[in-house]
């Protein structure tokens, strides 16, 4: 039994920060090319769902994989952003870009409040605190007058981007979502490989040491928490426009669990893991939707198997094979 606070996630992505590795550029390029061609073959709404969750999981991974902080309440940011942007688009009649911005800003503020409280505890307590606050947000969403209770906010208008581009067409919206999510992913990549990201990894690997080196650890933790919450909010706000719906599902703890699962099976602390994880889980939910409650059981089984036998995640294993950080 270990009692040390030095956490070691079995990640394979410990890149030395000398420029951008060429294979990362290639992967991002291939990914973008694939995303441009994909809607010709695959259903765009499905792809948009995958993209939103890929961004959501990547946001969580920024906190979990690189900051070493397990938030079990990220649905709070995803869901509240989705509510705020849906409300902004439907009731206030804002254009989609402003609605998304409003939702994202709401998530950032919420992230600042919850983060400031949660980082006062560490490890397992941190997970419990975030989960409890997320449940509080859930109860708020259940009772607040503007969220529509059990019905949620339905029939959210997609509107015209910048007042010009009609997003009612799935194809048009798809490319907007690609731009948002791809931008989000690049931002996360940039954060991870910045000096800030290096300090973050130092805190994750050995917090007392980072403290003794003179870093204000709590400020770094809070900063990464707010960034992660903001990006999760961006994903949630975009999702609200795609499905024209904000509902209690988005803020419930099962959503927090799902996004942790995506990160876990894709590979914690890898750059591309959450994308793979989100694709696997969303595809599974889509194709096995007819199985009803079995989907939950299947998710539980994947959780257990991943933790027991497969902690590196899919991308982590591939990274080990090709001996390159992914």
């Amino acid at each position: 039994m270990t009692s040390d606070t030095q956490t070691h996630y079995e990640s394979a992505a410990e890149a030395l920060p000398i420029g951008t590795p060429r294979h990362h550029v290639v992967i991002f390029g291939v990914l973008l090319a694939f995303l441009i061609v994909a809607p010709l073959v695959l259903y765009p709404v499905f792809l948009m769902k995958v993209l939103c969750f890929a961004l959501f999981a990547s946001a969580l991974n920024l906190l979990l994989g690189f900051g070493g902080l397990l938030s079990f309440g990220h649905a709070a940011f995803f869901g509240s952003a989705s509510y705020v942007s849906a409300h902004a688009a439907k009731v206030w009649g804002l254009t989609p870009e402003l609605a998304i911005l409003a939702g994202t800003a709401a998530a950032a503020v919420l992230g600042l409040v919850i983060g400031a409280l949660a980082i006062r505890r560490q490890g397992i307590y941190f997970a419990m605190v975030t989960l409890a606050f997320a449940q509080m947000v859930f109860f708020f969403a259940l009772q607040a007058p503007f969220t529509g209770g059990e019905d949620g906010i339905q029939a959210v208008p997609r509107g015209h981007l910048f007042g010009l581009l009609n997003l009612a067409s799935d194809m048009t919206l798809y490319f907007v979502v690609v731009a948002i999510v791809f931008g989000g992913l690049l931002a996360i990549y940039r954060i991870i490989h910045s000096p800030f990201g290096q300090v973050l990894k130092a805190i994750r690997d050995n917090e007392p040491r980072a403290v003794s080196l003179g870093y204000k650890v709590n400020r770094y933790k809070l900063a990464v928490f707010v960034m992660s919450a903001t990006l999760a909010g961006l994903a949630g706000a975009t999702k609200a426009l795609v499905f024209q719906l904000a509902s209690l599902t988005d803020v419930y703890w099962t959503m927090s669990g799902e996004v942790v699962l995506m990160t876990l099976i894709g590979g914690m602390g890898t750059i591309f893991g959450p994308l793979v994880g989100a694709t696997v889980i969303v595809a599974m939910q889509n194709y096995f939707a007819g199985l009803g409650a079995w989907v939950t059981i299947l998710q539980g089984i994947i959780f257990v198997v991943s933790v027991l036998l497969f902690r590196e995640g899919i991308v982590g294993v591939v990274a080990r094979w090709i001996k390159k950080p992914l």
Binding site: T2, L264, W294, G300, I301, F303, R311
Partner: peptide, 25 residues
Amino acid sequence: YHLDHLYGLLLTFGLALIIQGLFRN
């Protein structure tokens, strides 16, 4: 036990999903 304690949380979360799902079914 030799791993980070968070894995215990994740494992038991998965177990909770399985147990609840089975009873719901």
